[in-house]
Design a protein around this nucleic acid. Structure first.
Length: 885
RNA sequence: GCCCGGGUGGUGAAAUGGUAGACACAGAGGACUUAAAAUCCUUUGACUUCGGUCGUGCGGGUUCGAGUCCCGCCCCGGGCACCA
């Protein structure tokens, strides 16, 4: 063996030997605890992996390898999120079919993952587009359907009337189709939804039971958007007789049938109800049709025109915050139930039809949006909240909830909190409304009018009824066809394949299959369950397998999935729990988000005729281009590694030039796991040098190596040097074990470096028997502690000492607190909190000894002389602080 | 605008309220070498009258003691964005 790290001479050999030995096959020893380590389900893109993608695979691998050595049964699988739009678009571009294409890409991913030595059990691998997998995706769809959680309803899509196609939100720019330039319309077509809103509260509550980054939990909570408020009915003035109440509804400014028209509003600020000076209905509000019958022609036309405009505007533009508020008066008034005053009813698109009731009470004095609107349309503004109980007038809008009511009848003088409760109860007592909890969360739209996805297992009968495809007829297979491109009429390409569409229903009559497919997020919402039992032909998983392996102990991936994937997977897990199919309510016990890998990327200054996108201060150029331009025209910036930026370093390049273990250690060492890495190839050679130092150390100590040190060391009389070697060893075991457990991989590696430095310092001079035994323990420990991070090198080193086993099959070293303990510590001495001196003290000395020793120091006496000692703080084993005055 | 992260030497970074800068990189000096590479050793926060003084984005506070806790700001990154 060499005395340096020469990856080309051994790394690929070890990978072959691991493969031949089936080393990574999941072991299921009875009585052993389990550990389930999982990386996010990747979509295998044609660009292949970059070293950036390895950022999460390597740390998960390190922790799984350590857990295995610690005696756990480890499940560490990998598969591919193959269905979905990215794959289909790529296949269309390449004029090929997505199935073979994605298979090829997945093979590349697998080859690259193997190349860096990640210990995946490939025997459990699958793709979400495998019929044997999506059969069960459909089966779970049916579970949801039967529980009333999957339903079809009309929903708006962006429709391009020229290209006759459905557009994604990002394909609509300024209300026009990016490609055709046509004014985009909202088209209502039936779409499938999952009723995730039923689970809103549980999705909030159970976040308390998982160990996730706090930021991700907050993002999910914000997304679900719970708010507490009051929903109540408003009556339209003059549209009915008063029911003996306090309102004068006999006015006939607006007259219709005689039935009072009402609409509901939701507010979180019921305390401001006396400040309501108008109401706003969303342009899509259902009341408008009736309401308009009773108003004059002029108002009717204005509202109709406004509604038309709202319909053609894209959601993105409509909700742009920079846009000035728009709206029209309906000509009708409503009654404020709090004080009986008439308030104008307006229509404006700043009120969303899809949230709450699609109508609001507007209180311009205490709401920014209402204030803007009232100012523009010269609607009265009435202050009803004041920062103090005296009712001081303040600059409006005053939106703080820290205040007191004024001009609010009998509620004047109460605090916001008190009056919210009181007014809520009053409204309920009046029978016109109730306190209510609203969520921003919408139902999950899963329909895609696209080919490359999991077919929805529904049959539409001639009577227009829906039937589920019976379980024994699953999966509804995606037909292999040559043409699968979007069709131009807004329907799925599947709708144009008669052999697919035409079928018989459960009663033997002609029926039509559902032709929408499920969006990719459905497929990735349960794959972690399938990994527990991936080739079960009869069930999605066996109870025993899921009960044993679930939940995922450690789930690792990018923070960009903070909401969507993680929320959907949690939702499905809860539904499956409710159905009694699994025993966990949450799928992922611990979650970790890796930082990004950034690469230095060249940009050039914009030319005079060029306009840059917002937030950009240069034009992205290739490295080739950068080499040709004058230096002063180029700036380099750190940008996320991606093929489109041309700044990618591939695992192949890294392994070829620096070695897989050097790459792995560099990824671990360069920065904390959660932090971004600024990539530098040189960093890999730095870590390669560290590996070389280990090889050199082992090589130099080989003559002293005693392989059965374990049997002999306990009986050996140790001198000071041997004791120090053992201390360094056990301290290293302690720090490495805890660092890997707490996901601190950078300090894991620096712990190894420190250990090696200590060993190099301690292994000088003559070798005796005690030394040889202590060094042998140190060598074994060093190799084993290195093994999760640099498995090729560890196996090579272990082998070079005459051993046959794979390090992965060895036991993880245990540390002994007594051996790791220092016998003397350095005590810091402070005077008034400032460090003045230090001294050595035996471990375990009492407080009086600390204090006496500190005060005896000449330097300290100088500082204390002539002053009164007020107090002496002693932290045993750490410091003495003398407070003088 | 709101919500999350983060701001520590020349650089990447460490640090359960207890000696700030561990571990590396880069720099400087030296050893080995004909020379280079590789390797090894020493040194490296700033200032200093060599006694010390100052230092973790800024300003306050709590504490015997604050990078760490609290309050108010500034800057950078990310998420949400008219959700009533």
């Amino acid at each position: 063996m060499s005395d340096r790290y020469e990856p080309s001479t051994f790394e690929s050999n070890w990978r072959q030997r691991w493969k031949d030995a089936d080393l990574f096959k999941t072991r299921e020893n009875p009585n052993a605890p389990k550990y389930y380590g999982l990386d996010f389900f990747p979509y295998p893109s044609g660009a292949g992996l970059s070293v950036g993608h390895c950022r999460n695979y390597v740390p998960t691998d390190v922790i799984c390898r350590m857990k295995l050595m610690q005696g756990y049964n480890v499940l560490h699988p990998m598969g591919f999120d193959a269905f979905g739009l990215p794959a289909e678009n790529e296949a269309i571009k390449r004029k090929t079919h997505p199935a073979p294409m994605i298979k090829g890409y997945a093979d590349t991913y697998r080859r690259q993952m193997d190349l860096i030595g990640v210990s995946y059990d490939w025997s459990r691998s699958f793709s979400s587009s495998d019929p044997s997998y999506y059969k069960w995706t459909q089966w779970i769809f049916e579970v949801l359907y039967k529980r009333g959680l999957a339903y079809q309803k009309l929903a708006a899509v962006n429709w391009d009337p020229v290209d006759k196609t459905v557009l994604a939100d990002e394909e609509v720019v300024g209300g026009r189709a990016e490609r055709s330039g046509a004014l985009v319309e909202k088209k209502y077509i039936p779409q499938w939804f999952f009723r995730i809103t039923d689970y809103a509260q549980r999705l909030i509550d159970d976040l308390d039971t998982v160990e996730w980054p706090e930021g991700i939990k907050v993002q999910q909570k914000n997304w679900i958007g719970r708010s507490e408020g009051v929903q109540f009915a408003m009556k339209v003035q003059g549209t009915g007789k008063a029911e003996g109440g306090r309102y004068d509804l006999d006015s006939t400014e607006v007259s219709t049938s005689g039935e009072p028209l009402t609409f509901e509003v939701f507010t979180t600020r019921i305390d401001t109800i006396f400040g309501m000076t108008f109401c706003v209905l969303a342009p899509e509000h259902g009341l408008l049709e009736k309401l308009l019958q009773g108003v004059d022609q002029e108002h009717r036309d204005a509202v109709a025109a406004y509604q038309l405009a709202a319909r053609t505007l894209s959601d993105t533009d409509r909700t742009s915050t920079t846009r000035e508020k728009t709206g029209v008066f309906t000509g009708a008034d409503a009654i404020n139930p709090a004080n009986g005053e008439a308030v104008q009813i307006w229509v404006a698109d700043y009120v969303l039809a899809t949230y709450g009731t699609g109508a609001i009470m507007a209180v311009p004095a205490h709401d920014d949006r209402d204030f803007d609107f009232a100012t523009k349309f010269e609607i009265p503004i009435k202050q009803v909240i004041s920062p103090d109980a005296e009712g001081t007038a303040v600059e409006l809008p005053f939106v703080s909830k820290d205040g007191y009511l004024v001009n609010s009848g009998e509620y004047s003088g109460l605090s916001v909190a008190e009056s919210q409760l009181g007014l809520g109860i009053w409204i309920e007592g009046l029978g016109i409304g109730q306190r209510k909890i609203q969520y921003k969360l919408r139902d999950w739209l899963i329909s895609r009018q696209r080919y490359w996805g999991c077919p929805i297992p529904v049959i539409h009968t001639v009577d227009g009824e829906q039937q589920l495809v019976p379980e024994d007829c699953l999966p509804v297979e995606l037909p292999m066809v040559e043409h699968y491109e979007p069709t131009g009429d807004g329907t799925s390409p599947l709708a144009h394949i008669p052999e697919f569409v035409n079928t018989t229903d459960l009663d033997g009559r002609l029926g039509k299959r559902e032709t929408d497919t499920m969006g990719g997020f459905a497929c990735s919402s349960w794959y972690f369950l399938r990994f527990t039992d991936p080739f079960n032909f009869n069930q999605p998983w066996t109870e025993a397998a899921a009960d044993y392996w679930m939940p995922v102990d450690c789930y690792v991936g990018g923070a960009e999935h903070a909401v969507m994937h993680l929320l959907y997977a949690r939702f499905w897990t809860k539904v499956l729990y409710d159905e009694g199919l699994i025993k966990v309510k949450e799928p992922f016990q611990k979650l970790h988000n890796q930082g990004q890998v950034l690469a230095l990327t060249p940009y050039r200054k914009a030319r005079e005729d060029e306009r840059l996108n917002v937030g950009e201060d240069g034009v992205l150029i290739s490295f080739k281009e950068a080499a040709e331009l004058p230096k002063e025209d180029i700036t380099h910036r750190w940008a996320r590694m991606s093929k489109s930026k041309g700044n990618v370093v591939t695992p192949e390049e890294a392994v070829e030039s620096y070695g897989a273990d050097a790459l792995r250690l560099y990824l671990l060492f360069r920065a904390p796991f959660e932090a971004d890495i600024e990539w530098e190839n040189k960093g890999m050679s730095d870590l390669g040098r560290f590996l070389s130092r280990i090889f050199r150390f082992v090589d130099s100590q080989r003559p002293n190596y005693v392989s059965n040190w374990k049997d002999l060391l306990p009986f050996e009389e140790l001198d000071d040097r041997a004791r120090k070697i053992r201390r360094a060893t056990h301290q290293a075991i302690r720090v490495v074990t805890t660092d890997i457990d707490r996901f601190a991989f950078n300090t894991y590696i620096s712990g190894l470096m420190k250990f090696l430095n200590a060993l190099n310092d301690l292994t000088t001079g003559e070798a005796d028997r005690a030394f040889a035994l202590a060094v042998s323990e140190a060598i074994d420990s060093l190799i084993l502690l290195l093994a999760p991070g640099a498995p090729h090198s560890a196996d090579e080193l272990w082998n070079s000492l005459g051993h046959e086993e794979f390090t992965l099959n060895l036991e993880w070293p245990q540390f002994n607190e007594e051996l790791a303990a220092e016998d003397a510590v350095t005590i810091a001495v402070q005077v008034n909190g400032k460090l003045r001196d230090t001294f050595e003290l035996a471990v375990g000395a009492d407080q009086a000894t600390h204090e006496a020793a500190a005060l005896a120091l000449p330097k300290i006496q100088q500082y204390v002389e002539g002053k009164v000692i007020r107090k002496v703080v002693v932290v045993s084993g750490k410091l003495v602080n003398i407070v003088v005055s």
